[in-house]
Design a protein around this nucleic acid. Structure first.
Lengths: 211, 211
DNA sequence: CGGATACCTGAATCACTATTCATGTTTTGT
DNA sequence: ACAAAACATGAATAGTGATTCAGGTATCCG
């Protein structure tokens, strides 16, 4: 029976296990991840794992939820100051790519979730889309972006971010210097694509443009 | 030691195993797929599997390559008659969604490939992008679409198709009637998004409205 | 028929690892 | 100091499932 830690020591231990599990899952995937290796990485014995977690799946789910929360927080922060929706998209994508560079594990873990934990997967995408759709709907209504369907657009934009991140961040890890961020020109091309999709239609005003 | 079948009987048996493996992988994923169940589904004994395949991974790779080829073939066929790039995109996406409806396994299998067989994954995306990029580059050069970066655009479009397919085809399977295709309005919204991203810039006519 | 070739069988082997639990160790409160 | 409470240990258990192999069966040919 697993239970929550009752003291600071316990909390630290639980935290170390979680950290180690993140690394392990990110490195070898859910199925090949072994509890022994996770606990070794955390510097504890196997049994300790079961003091704080029901099993492998529970850690997995907790990691998804945790990373998802952190990611959305990052993006919300990054967007906060943006003057308009297109600026928000730029800031948001930048933050997303940065987060992916920092935690490539989230991406890897989510891809696995298809079979490991469909619930975790739905939760992940669902939470992101929820806010995204609302923001796009508002911007669309206000004329800041084109009159597109916000739900479809939210998914499309998410798909773009995911695959560009996969190609230029995850497939890159050349083990060279510290973190390999996305190439600047790729970022600009991506934003160009997105801007074209979102920007309002050019006003068909024969003479005057409206504000 | 596995080897190729030498007679028609052998070829049929190998084919049945492959078919059964596709179903099994698509249903429970690579790791939980069991050779016994695959062979049972094919109506042969376990040993027969190893007559034609080195092991689990080899079937997996062969399935990826096979489905990838079929998918590209379908799309190529669908696009053939298109008068311009935007029409080609429409036909291509329709074909892609149809294929995904018919073989949801491809999607599921590719998502797993991250850890199971990175090579298979790279091959899959690489082959698709290769042709796509070339087509976009030509269209862009000819002014049929906007002057975008064809490589980034190819990946972005692929990402859109993948995630929209996931959301509205794979997450739908309500087990209702035959095949649940993508809702027509979602398809139109998707094409709208793509069209906005790709269409050439409107000429900056100072006085006249453009057609 | 005889025997060569291709195909097929499935119990036995082998390697792996998640989870349990009986037993220590450390910390905390008084 | 001393007993709870909390935390930690890791050998043993138990279940899994991929792969092998010693022996069949089907088919064809001269």
């Amino acid at each position: 029976m697993s239970s929550a830690p009752r003291t600071a020591r316990g909390r630290r231990t639980r935290e170390r296990i979680l950290e180690s599990a993140l690394k392990e899952f990110g490195k070898v995937g859910y199925h090949d991840a072994s509890i022994v290796r996770i606990t070794e990485g955390a510097g504890v014995a196997m049994g300790t794992f079961y003091l704080y977690f029901e099993g492998k799946l529970e850690v997995f789910n907790e990691l998804v939820e945790d990373l998802n929360r952190r990611m959305r927080h990052r993006m919300t922060q990054a967007i906060a100051e943006a003057p308009d929706r297109l600026a928000a998209e730029r800031a948001g994508f930048r933050a997303f790519f940065e987060f992916t560079t920092e935690y490539p594990q989230l991406y890897r873990i989510i891809r696995q979730a298809e079979f490991v934990s469909p619930d975790a997967m739905h939760l992940h995408y669902g939470r992101i889309v929820e806010g995204y759709r609302r923001a796009l709907a508002t911007a669309s209504h206000d004329g800041e972006i084109a009159p597109i369907d916000p739900e479809v657009a939210a998914w499309a934009l998410m798909g773009i971010g995911e695959i560009i991140g996969m190609r230029w961040i995850l497939w890159q890890e050349k083990g060279d210097d510290g973190a390999p961020p996305i190439p600047e020109d790729v970022f600009e091309h991506t934003m160009d694509f997105i801007t074209r999709a979102l920007r309002p239609d050019a006003p068909v005003a024969p003479v005057e443009t409206q504000e």
